[in-house]
Computed example of a mutant assay.
Amino acid sequence: MNDKIYTIESEATATDVLQLSEKCIKLVKDTLETIRTIVLEEDFKNTQDEIYFFKNVKPQVYSKLIYYAKLFNIESKRPRGSSKPQKKYLDYQIVRLQDYFNDNLEFYQYFRRGGTSLDLQYFIRGKDDIRLHPDNFHFFTDDKFSTSHDSTVATIMAYDMLIVYLKQEIDKLENIKGMETIIKSNQFSSKLFWTASKTDLIELIYAIHSSGAINSGTADIKEMAIICEQIFNIDLSNYYHTFVEIRSRKTNNTKFIDKLKESLIQRIEESDE
């Protein structure tokens, strides 16, 4: 599903966001239906598997459905014309999304800190206590494929991605002239090619930015990405989106950075021999 979404996003233009959303909504709905069929036919071997699925697996898929449906709604009502009313509209949408986190603060903090003590209540089917449901009606309409909070996790993930997208759009409106200057002033030919994955390079860019190693931490992440694209002859596409996926990794958020460290240590040790 993610590979197909990447293909759809890669082929879409900046003005095709509504068509892109419609295509991705259909794709995710079909994926969810396939997964639902598998779950109903095979079920889970134990409680731990069920918790893992409804806490980690289903939300990863369902969040994309929420994301693209909400994106379609936001973009279809976005004002046209000058940047000022657009920025005001996008800022308002960010505030509305953040209100959801505040309205579900207790669970939001539980999820963010990696809590597990209430997983039996939150991520097992059949826990039909109305007090456990923040605003999840899916549990009542499809209790064989929903728990009290799996859609809440998906909504948190989706809103994270939407906030990143909206901030990116605001950046575009604020930096149109500035970005044109950057691109024109840095047009040069490089014979270097990035041969690791795009995700690895994006992880590296964010690591360098976070360390404050460039401009004492005040560098624009977008400018850094553009420069890296030019140096390494690569198109990083939606790096904001990719960073959200890096941040949501369950096992290792710094996989490439760790690999770099191991490689350097090995080279140092080999040089000392």
Rank of each mutant, 00 (worst) to 15 (best):
F44H: 04
S63D: 09
F53W: 05
A69R: 05
F53M: 01
Y52N: 11
I51K: 11
E42R: 12
L32H: 05
N46A: 09
D43K: 11
N46M: 06
L65F: 03
Y52D: 06
V39R: 15
R36N: 14
Y52K: 11
R36Q: 14
N56W: 08
E33R: 12
T34R: 15
T37E: 10
E33D: 15
L32M: 14
E42H: 10
Q60D: 01
N56Q: 14
K45W: 01
P59W: 00
E50N: 07
Y68R: 02
R36A: 10
K45M: 05
K55A: 10
E50T: 08
K70A: 11
I35Y: 14
A69N: 11
R36I: 13
D43V: 00
I38L: 13
V39A: 09
L40Q: 13
Y68A: 09
I51F: 01
V39E: 07
T34E: 15
T37C: 11
N56S: 09
I66R: 11
L40V: 07
E41P: 00
Y62Q: 12
K64Q: 14
E33W: 08
R36P: 05
V39P: 00
Q48V: 04
K64M: 06
T47C: 02
T31W: 08
D30V: 04
N56M: 02
D43N: 02
D30L: 02
K55Y: 12
F53N: 05
N46L: 05
Q48A: 14
N46V: 01
V39Y: 09
T31M: 07
T31Q: 14
E41V: 00
V39K: 13
T34M: 11
Y67L: 12
T34K: 15
N56I: 07
K55R: 13
K70N: 00
R36K: 15
V61E: 09
K70V: 05
V61H: 13
I38M: 10
L65E: 12
S63E: 04
P59R: 00
D49S: 03
I35N: 10
I66F: 08
D30I: 07
P59L: 06
Y52A: 08
Q48S: 11
Y68S: 04
E33C: 09
N56D: 08
K55I: 09
S63M: 02
Q60H: 10
F44E: 10
F44M: 00
K58F: 02
L40T: 02
L71Q: 09
V61F: 15
N46I: 06
L71K: 15
K64S: 11
K70T: 06
Q60K: 09
L65N: 08
Y68V: 12
D49L: 02
I66S: 03
D30S: 11
D30H: 12
K58C: 01
V57P: 13
T47L: 03
F54D: 06
E41N: 14
A69Y: 09
K64V: 05
V39D: 03
E42L: 06
F53D: 10
K45H: 02
D43W: 03
Q48K: 13
N46H: 05
V39C: 10
Q60W: 08
K55V: 08
D30T: 14
P59F: 03
T31K: 14
Q48F: 11
T47W: 03
Q48Y: 10
Y52T: 04
Y62P: 02
I38T: 01
I51P: 07
K64T: 04
K58N: 10
F44S: 01
F54Q: 01
D30Q: 13
I38R: 07
L71P: 00
L40M: 13
T47H: 04
V39S: 03
Y67K: 05
I66T: 02
L65K: 05
